[in-house]
Design a protein around this nucleic acid. Sequence first.
RNA 1: GCCCAGAUGGUGGAAUCGGUAGACACGAGGGACUUAAAAUCCCUUGGCCAUAUCGGCUGUACGGGUUCGAGUCCCGUUCCGGGCACCA
Length: 950
Amino acid sequence: MARDYNFQEIEQKWHREWVQNRTYRVVEDTNRKKFYVLNMFPYPSGAGLHVGHPLGYIASDIYARFKRLQGFNVLNPMGYDAYGLPAEQYAIQTGQHPEVTTFANIDRYREQLDKIGFSFDWNREVRTCDPGYYKWTQWAFRKMFDSYFDTKQQKAQPISLLVRHLEQHGTEGLNASETESLNFTAQEWAAMTEQQKSETLMNYRLAYVSEMMVNWCPGLGTVLANDEVVDGVSERGGFPVEQKKMRQWCLRVSAYAQRLLDGLETIEWSESIKETQRNWIGRSEGTEVEFRIADSDQTFTIFTTRADTMFGVTFMVLAPESELVDLVTTDDRREEVDAYIKYVKGRTERERMIDHKVTGVFSGSYAINPFTGEKNPIWISEYVLAGYGTGAIMAVPAHDSRDYAFARHFNLPVIPLIEGADVSEESYDAKEGVVCNSPRPDVKPYIDFSLNGLTVKEAIAATKKYVEEHKLGRVKVNYRLRNAIFSRQRYWGEPFPVYHKNGIPTMVPEECLPVLLPEVENFKPSETGEPPLGNAQLWAWDEVNRKVVDKALIDEKTVFPMELNTMPGFAGSSAYYLRYMDPKNNDALVSPEADQYWQNVDLYVGGSEHATGHLIYSRFWNKFLFDLGISCKEEPFQKLVNQGMIQGRSNFVYRIQGTNTFVSLGLKDKYDVTPIHVDVNIVKNDVLDIEAFKAWRPEYADAQFELEDGKYVCGWAIEKMSKSMYNVVNPDRIVEQYGADTLRLYEMFLGPVEQSKPWDTNGIDGCHRFLKKFWQLFWDKDGRLQVDDSEASAENMKSLHKLIKKATADIETFSYNTTIPAFMVATGELAQQKCRSRRVLEPLVVLIAPFCPHIAEELWQALGHETGVCDARWPELDEAFLVESSVKMPVQFNGKVRFTLEFPTDASKEDIEKETLANEQSQKYLSGMQVVKVVVVPGRIINIVVKPNN
RNA sequence: GCCCAGAUGGUGGAAUCGGUAGACACGAGGGACUUAAAAUCCCUUGGCCAUAUCGGCUGUACGGGUUCGAGUCCCGUUCCGGGCACCA
């Protein structure tokens, strides 16, 4: 009896063994080199895993197993991003506690993950909603509250240093990232009340409360960070988002803008993700120039990246929200300006984003251009944003398309400043060319300064220098990166370790952490922004007993109300990779020893959709912890691989309109048909299982089917994998039918890991067939192991070492989709060679172990090993076995032989040809063959085409 | 509009340093075994031409260029995907 590849039995057996033997437990071992592999941890949704989720996990698991076989001590942990909106939405609908549904989902995920055979060390699992975990989220927040950013040293410092500076010098000489520029003396600081001091420090803290315009989403009842808003609607749910002034907790992410930008140069991420982050950070180097308001002592500052265009300014524009608006509006213009401001306020962010109407109003005042002495009218328009730069611009219509549109609309002058630039139809925005009209030849120069004849680049530099020397302004770098709004008006998130003592936000002492999420009756947020924690009874801080108490006990002296907001989703996911290093430590986020050993993540695998969210926040968070000395590496994720999405492949049946008859794909064009999604699980190779279809949709039980060649062929389309399209493929089903090893192999075989691709069940048989063939390599037809200690032939060794070379190189670069064909070829060759040698077959088992750990374990054991295959050693490549392959003559190669041999470059073609044909090695391959054609190039000989002599 | 990445058979995709395309798999067609089916095995499979054996031409989105040689490098164009977007 032949021995079948019984994958179900094998896989279940090894899952048990791995648990019993704690095969994948990892401990720090300073004698071994570490390697840290990490997947972005999942949010456990109610729908469970579909076939797309494990893609990244499989890819990283292969890498982790590969590194382990190479002798590294590999950390490959897994956990759950358990706080979040869907669990809470579900709780509101069903009244179930989010913890209950979240835990149920986690169990379901775990069950599904376990079937696929990952090498995760579950002993290190983390859950963001676990108090032992979020203690450290609260702790980090507390540290941020107690820190400011020193712009000179470019690092976080204790706020106490800043307080000392204020006490001694006021704001004089202060180098700190700030919300707005403040100016006060040490005396003024000393005179402030406690509350004023608290307010003032909020201007500098890395975690701070501030009254600000926020993205308010009434549909979700919470504020959102910029990256959670897409096209004016919420990323989750697609509810409209409006701008609203609210008092919110924020993180001063912008302080780290430059370091976030610089750090990108030191990490191995895809260029597109780095570019996305660069865009998001949006560094722009420019100049701030002060303009005096005519007939006034007041000045205001504008920001420009085109300092070379100072002589082309024809008007100024203020953002409608600018505080200067009131100042510059003259009495005769007031009514019109007020009407305009009212109009702008009535427009939503979304409206402003979608249609760029040219609107604006003249304020009545003029500003004096310090380079020309001219009076430029000051306008107010919504196209200037309050939040960027200074909220005021100088308009140069000749060289800025927005200014141009405005000037044309309101009939303002346009002065071209670049030789040959035609601005009759549109502005000339390019930063190229030679400057002219600066100053204009027909105008008497106002100052002794000219840019004429310089290139744009030179002119910018010259103007910057002039501005600095004459104290007209300063060189300034602006960033688009905004501070992150850190509070949410939701229940299912980390509570803030904050109470409000007489209006002063105060931190719960470090040793009292964690502050536990209180129970509430009603999880529902309100449309007005009152958070659900307002419903919690046990939610006040007792300063004397240092604990959370019933809010009925609130008094003016010792018991105060707690903060009602909770933290956003990115809070818990920002430092989780550090926690995996030391997940059970109750005294520190991570011990210095563990951090020193594991350093940072060597390989991080996850989706690119987190480019401007999680991947920015966790870099920021880690840089902060680096400044504190908690994390020894400034960048958390050294190498990043973005796995693509697996799309669904939907199937359709075609119903003739108004009838109960379905026609096969090839016949549908003859009729007027309606395509109907059909469950892909009752379709095989695009052929519909008609009986299953009738059972699935009872309303079509009596339907007629028009077949082609006796089959009903379905149409197909590539769509997002989702329930409503009936195209969800559940990994459990694949595991059941083909086994986890086939699933793992097939997901990798489907195409490059980084690429999005549709799930196509049609191809899975090929991978399964390969595993069967691989299995058969080891057993004779009576089911006995047919591996012996015989010598391996040169051919055997060549097949093996070709594979070693390919697999080693490919796994290192994540090119799994090309490794698998190499396995197929090698297996085919060895089968043909009837290879029995342990010297070949044993390394072969090790080579396949990262991909298919179950079958590898089983064979490894059958080969008589006591310990598991994951403790084996990755086979060494011996190039000696490949030497002959430099002269390739594949069996089915149409008689073509390819050589690469070195010759002196001055050798003639004839000499090369003659010598090559006489060459010993060539002779071996050319004997018995007749040379048809030789293609020679100087230095090399490329092709020799031969055919058999007879 | 700006930035990034890409385009190869019926399909997914190989070709890793510029070396003479299409690995591997799917699908399709033909055949063997079988009462039949499943499973398994063998052959063919970019296109066109051919005496269908030998072989020839053509071919990696399109148009040019560099090179003895280009899917690969350079310039331009088209199309698809992703990001940013009144950011001065």
